[in-house]
Design a protein around this nucleic acid. Structure first.
Lengths: 126, 126
DNA sequence: CCCAAATCAGTAATGATTACTATTTTATTA
DNA sequence: TAATAAAATAGTAATCATTACTGATTTGGG
């Protein structure tokens, strides 16, 4: 394990203990329960550092806010445009990482998002 | 063909005649060459409408700006974190659309981005 | 031609993110 | 351990892409 600051550890723990894809603001509120005077800037700085180091994934679904994912294994995101929920679908292998390599590209992080309508919202629309 | 306004047609044409993935600001500058007094708000409004109708794709790579893609066929994006260039890799079929359907999710638009380092930048780093 | 709905240009407001600075914490070296 | 350098932080101010708003203009159906 690397030697992370108390703040960075707390941020990482918050992300590891949820299966949602929270924003910086949400993470900030959670971490404040442990470190009440943590700065929002610190949260942003550490989220950036953590995604650069590959500990977490940074996901942008086009809603104006960055989302973060504590799960750095390869998976697909299904984002419902109706309820805005993001579901994860585990992938046994990453089909596009290979394709990237074949094109001389060194892959580091993959973000796969399918936008559409989830089962629940389809039913509610009837 | 649908009956689009002159502004929307011009915006769509700009996007159809480039293989880059421009931002709203870039598109605005291009369209202004034809319609000098077009409003930036009009560009944003039409880009939103065009991506909702499926004419174009809206891509967010986490650089703080939305990118737009005139190619709405299924393809993979390789984004170099070094030179920020986005390359397209055509996909004969969309492997994740099927996966989405199997999970009761109705797919409408897919955005696949692999972040990493491109061939050119790897060589320049030596 | 007339009217209602849609779209527009121009501008102001929003809000997520970043930049900045003085202070505190951590690591290093002797 | 003490001194010092380097890194990280809290708090706040600034940025800037995007959205909201408003009054004018365009469009399309009857």
């Amino acid at each position: 394990m690397k030697n992370y600051s108390r703040q960075r550890e707390a941020i990482l723990n918050v992300l590891r203990s949820t299966d949602t894809h929270p924003t910086a603001g949400w993470i900030y509120e959670r971490v404040r329960e442990q470190i009440p005077n943590i700065s929002l800037g610190t949260v942003y700085r550490n989220l950036t550092a953590l995604s650069q180091s590959g500990d977490i994934l940074s996901i942008n679904v086009g809603d104006g806010q960055e989302h973060y994912d504590g799960d750095n294994s390869s998976h697909l995101h299904l984002r419902c445009k109706c309820c805005t929920k993001i579901s994860d679908i585990a992938l046994s292998l990453d089909p596009f990482a290979r394709l990237a390599l074949e094109n001389g590209f060194k892959p580091e992080a993959s973000v796969y998002v399918v936008h559409g309508i989830c089962e629940k919202c389809i039913q509610n629309k009837i």
